[in-house]
Structures are given as structure tokens and as C-alpha cells.
């Protein structure tokens, strides 16, 4: 299940979620890794909270039609909680890493993973591991793509393809490469 969530059904390359951060924060490997770790933390924590809200509030009181709105609220709260926590843990770390957190609030991958795990009808530990694996897949692709873009920055690219066009072409090649994982896991 974890291999399927991370590689076969990769959040970015198979489900096409989180594309804005995929293109926007992958200019350097370190910033991509920082964004990936922050997103991993937020996706895992918000998925835990979303699972609890779904099980003990939305399912229990027949409020399934409020799922999307509720999840958005939970995600925004999780990001705020993370921001406050990092600030409390270390103001210096907050100065360094705080830039990523507002970006995560609007990252559709976070909402997408929460909705997917609800559809999967998993138990708590299964849902949390699914969310964690999905976010690991997101981080992996972010770092790989950042590495490729660092190389591209040194390469001589035809003027017509310079910038985002060559980035999208590389992303499509990466997506095709990840199709090679199909068949490893059916989940």
C-alpha cells in the first residue's frame, strides 16, 4: 500500500496534485527538500485530524456533505498549528522554514490526500501510513525534479524552450519514467 501511494499513484506525477509548488519551489534541491519535509509533516498531521473528524463527526452525524469544507478548515488549522509550533520550538528555525508554510495552505495535494484516504475506508494507522507514504512520494519527486532543474540551469537550452517550457517537458518525461512503477502495487 505504501509503495503504491508513494510511487505508482504518485501525488504529483499520477494524480497531478500540488503542481504549483512542484514548478515553483524546485529551483534548488535544498529548498525543494525543505518544502517536501514541511508538506510531509502537514499532510500527515492534517490527515490524522481529518480521519478523526470524518469518523467521529461527519460519519457519526450524517454530515458527509460538509466533508470538503471541513477538511479545508482542518488543513488551514493544521498549517497554523505547525507555524505556531515551529515558531515556539525555535524562532531561528521559523525564520528559515516559515516561508514554506503559507504555501502549503493552498497546496491541493494536502486536501487531495485527505479525500483519498476517506474514500479508501482505512483504519487510523492505515490512513496515516497512506498519507505519510503519499507525502514521501511528493517529497521524492520534488527533490528529483529540483536536481534535474539544477542540471538544466547549467545546460544550453534553446531560447524557445528556456524556463518553464523545458521544465514541463522534463516533468512529462519524469511522469513517464514513474509509469514504470505500474504493476508493483495494485493499491
Amino acid at each position: 500500500m505504501m509503495v503504491g501511494a508513494a510511487l505508482v499513484n504518485n501525488v504529483i506525477l499520477a494524480r497531478f496534485l500540488g503542481l504549483c509548488s512542484f514548478m515553483g519551489v524546485t529551483t534548488r534541491i535544498d529548498t525543494a527538500a525543505g518544502m517536501g519535509l514541511a508538506t510531509t509533516f502537514v499532510i500527515t498531521v492534517s490527515s490524522m485530524a481529518d480521519w478523526a473528524v470524518q469518523r467521529w463527526l461527519l460519519d457519526a452525524y450524517g454530515l458527509g456533505f460538509l466533508r470538503t469544507v471541513t477538511f479545508i478548515l482542518v488543513i488551514a488549522s493544521a498549517v497554523q498549528f505547525t507555524e505556531m509550533t515551529v515558531k515556539k520550538v525555535s524562532p531561528a528555525l521559523f525564520q528559515m522554514l516559515g516561508i514554506y508554510l503559507p504555501l502549503i495552505t493552498t497546496n491541493c495535494a494536502v486536501l487531495g490526500v485527505a479525500l483519498l484516504l476517506v474514500e479508501g475506508r482505512m483504519g487510523f494507522i492505515g490512513a496515516t501510513l497512506f498519507a505519510f507514504a503519499s507525502s514521501l512520494g511528493y517529497s521524492l519527486v520534488m527533490v528529483i525534479f529540483a536536481g534535474l532543474r539544477e542540471r538544466l540551469a547549467l545546460a544550453q537550452v534553446p531560447r524557445l524552450f528556456a524556463g518553464p517550457p523545458i521544465g514541463f517537458i522534463v516533468a512529462s518525461l519524469l511522469a513517464m519514467a514513474f509509469m514504470g512503477f505500474s504493476g508493483i502495487s495494485t493499491n
Binding site: 535544498d30 527538500a33 525543505g34 519535509l37 509533516f41 520550538v89 531561528a92 528559515m96 522554514l97
Partner: peptide
């Protein structure tokens, strides 16, 4: 490197 170490400490 400190950015990566910081992110590992704060999130991982």
C-alpha cells in the same frame, strides 16, 4: 545544509 538539517529537526 543548515536549511536541510533544520527541516529534518523541525518536521522529520
Amino acid at each position: 545544509r543548515m536549511l536541510l538539517k533544520g527541516a529534518l529537526a523541525a518536521y522529520a
